[in-house]
Amino acid sequence: MDDDDRLAMKKRVQRLVYLAAGGKIREDELAQSDADLRQIGLDSLGYLNLLEGLERTFGVAIDLDQMEDHSFLHTIDNLVRYLAAQRGEAA
């Protein structure tokens, strides 16, 4: 995955996070891709929407109870890294 792919993926993830939060996250906060999403307005319903969006957009199956570490969900950077790794495994 090259830088262009990664940038495109980041934009899609930012859009998904924005939609999952129902537009409640401000643009400047969304642009800080290392910000903790829980701190900037993604609540539990927002996370539910985000997980649905990730599954449907990227075709990944996310079983949280099978995973010890949920930190991949905490920031946009972490999400992009996680999705890139999933894609790498699938390839």
């Binding site: 996370y47 539910l48 649905e52 599954e55 079983d63 109870d65």
Partner: peptide
């Protein structure tokens, strides 16, 4: 159901 209540599971 264990885990998040996502539509797929």
């Amino acid at each position: 159901l264990k885990g998040a209540p996502l539509t797929r599971p």
